[in-house]
Measured scan of single mutants.
Amino acid sequence: CHSECLGNCSQPDDPTKCVACRNFYLDGRCVETCPPPYYHFQDWRCVNFSFCQDLHHKCKNSRRQGCHQYVIHNNKCIPECPSGYTMNSSNLLCTPCLGPCPKVCHLLEGEKTIDSVTSAQELRGCTVINGSLIINIRGGNNLAAELEANLGLIEEISGYLKIRRSYALVSLSFFRKLRLIRGETLEIGNYSFYALDNQNLRQLWDWSKHNLTITQGKLFFHYNPKLCLSEIHKMEEVSGTKGRQERNDIALKTNGDQASCENELLKFSYIRTSFDKILLRWEPYWPPDFRDLLGFMLFYKEAPYQNVTEFDGQDACGSNSWTVVDIDPPLRSNDPKSQNHPGWLMRGLKPWTQYAIFVKTLVTFSDERRTYGAKSDIIYVQTDATNPSVPLDPISVSNSSSQIILKWKPPSDPNGNITHYLVFWERQAEDSELFELDYCLKGLKLPSRTWSPPFESEDSQKHNQSEYEDSAGECCSCPKTDSQILKELEESSFRKTFEDYLHNVVFVPRKT
Results as ranks from 00 to 15, higher is better:
K103N: 06
E111R: 15
S119G: 05
A120H: 04
R124H: 14
N130L: 05
I134M: 05
N136T: 05
R138S: 04
R138Q: 08
G140S: 15
G140A: 13
N142V: 09
L143H: 05
E148I: 13
A149F: 12
N150P: 06
G159W: 03
Y160L: 10
R164C: 09
Y167K: 03
Y167L: 05
A168S: 04
L169M: 13
L169P: 11
L178V: 05
R179N: 08
L180N: 07
R182Q: 09
I188Q: 10
N190C: 15
A195Q: 03
L196I: 14
D197M: 13
R202K: 10
Q203V: 10
W205T: 03
W205S: 03
W207S: 09
I214G: 04
I214Y: 04
T215V: 14
G217D: 06
Y223C: 12
Y223G: 10
P225G: 14
C228H: 02
S230P: 14
H233N: 07
K234N: 14
K234I: 13
E236N: 04
E237M: 10
S239G: 07
G240R: 09
K242C: 13
N248W: 10
I250D: 15
I250A: 10
A251N: 15
A251W: 15
L252K: 07
T254W: 13
G256F: 04
Q258L: 06
A259H: 11
C261P: 01
S269W: 15
T273E: 13
T273I: 12
F275L: 06
I278A: 13
L279M: 15
W282G: 02
W286S: 02
P288R: 14
D289H: 02
R291E: 00
R291V: 03
R291H: 01
R291S: 01
D292L: 02
L293R: 01
L294N: 04
F296N: 00
Y305P: 11
F311A: 12
C317R: 04
C317M: 08
S321T: 09
S321R: 13
T323L: 14
V324W: 08
V324K: 02
P329H: 02
P329Q: 05
P330T: 08
N334Y: 13
S338I: 09
N340K: 14
G343K: 14
M346C: 08
R347I: 04
L349K: 04
L349R: 05
F358P: 00
F358T: 05
F358D: 01
L362S: 05
V363N: 06
F365R: 11
E368Y: 06
R369E: 05
T371L: 08
G373F: 06
G373W: 01
A374W: 03
S376R: 00
S376G: 09
A385T: 11
T386Y: 12
P391M: 02
P394K: 07
I395H: 13
I395K: 15
I395G: 11
L406N: 15
P411W: 02
